[in-house]
Write a protein that binds this DNA or RNA. Structure first.
Length: 271
DNA sequence: AACTTCTTCAACCGCAGGCTA
DNA sequence: CTAGCCTGCGGTTGAAGAAGT
């Protein structure tokens, strides 16, 4: 069979993207919309594989992304969804507008997991950790043999702190609280079969370059020679349901910050 | 100040599944 | 039905910066 690799490995750039490459990709995506990723690098003049372009766009350059820490609501939602879906990051991310699966995954691994452990909750099972159980002891033994990092963390946790945090946790809505689970499962927003997927036409400005340039005229005042890109409408105008409870004002603020951070100039290049 | 260890997160890799010829 | 292409997903890696000693 010998399936071909996704891209020709030779001659293609890897590693961190330069601002120049970002500009090319952004310009291409905003003028042409999302099309065949395999063709994107060639058409955009990039020495990257399509996969790399897709990843860069979806995880970093997409105009509708929300950057920064998760809000408390988002964090709760991630934990709740993870308890139901496991490591299905894309499903989880689809419930959090402007967040990517990669971002959620990173936040989970670097922050939420630690936090849950500190609270005495096993991040994998979402059940309280009970250090006195034989299971725990066995895991500690296993850990000492095979260097299981997670077990090590579990075992090294101060048991008094664990108990305290656990008690605290029981007073709040535990992720495995049956009532909470029931209410969640009754909530149509959490039906994973009805994930509100974002379509390209919802993100991107129409391909018509004249329409594009006119739409960004209001934002181009700061640079007459190289017009600045106008990100699309604020997210709350796109008709998203917002399970995080973020109100439009918050989203508008987020969007304003984004617009202020939007530094890329549009390039023109021939194909 | 210098060095080491830890943390974060962008990017990569390989695989699965959908689609089509 | 099968093979090949393409996209998307989840696990993993490694560079860079932060924190600790």
């Amino acid at each position: 069979m010998g399936r071909k690799p996704c891209c020709e490995k030779v001659g293609l750039k890897k590693g961190p993207w330069t601002s120049e490459e970002d500009k090319k990709l952004i310009n291409f995506m905003l003028t042409h919309g999302q099309c065949c990723w395999r063709a994107v690098p060639k058409l955009a003049g990039l020495l990257r594989c399509g996969k790399s372009c897709r990843l860069r766009w979806t995880n970093y350059l997409r105009p509708d992304l929300r950057r920064g820490m998760l809000s408390e609501d988002e964090e709760k939602l991630v934990i709740e969804l993870h308890s139901q879906l496991g490591n299905r990051w894309s499903k989880i991310a689809s419930q959090l507008p402007g967040r990517t699966d990669n971002e959620i995954k990173n936040i989970w691994n670097s922050y939420i997991m630690k936090k849950l452990r500190k609270m005495g909750i096993d991040p994998l099972t979402h059940k309280p950790i009970s250090p006195s159980t034989e299971e725990q002891q066995r895991r500690c033994m296993d850990m000492s043999c095979d260097g299981d990092e997670q077990a090590e963390l579990d075992c090294s946790m101060d048991s008094s702190e664990t108990a305290e945090e656990e008690a605290k946790e029981k007073n709040t809505a535990s992720p495995r609280d049956p009532a909470a689970d029931a209410s969640l499962s009754n909530c149509p927003e959490f039906c994973t079969d009805e994930v509100p997927m974002l379509q390209p036409h919802e993100i991107l400005i129409p391909c018509d370059s004249s329409a594009f340039s006119s739409s960004c005229s209001s934002a181009s005042s700061s640079s007459s020679s190289s017009p600045r890109m106008e990100p699309p409408e604020p997210m709350h105008l796109w008709g998203w349901d917002d399970p995080t409870g973020c109100n439009p004002i918050d989203q508008e603020l987020t969007w304003k910050s984004y617009q202020e951070d939007w530094k890329y100039d549009v390039f023109c290049f021939d194909y």
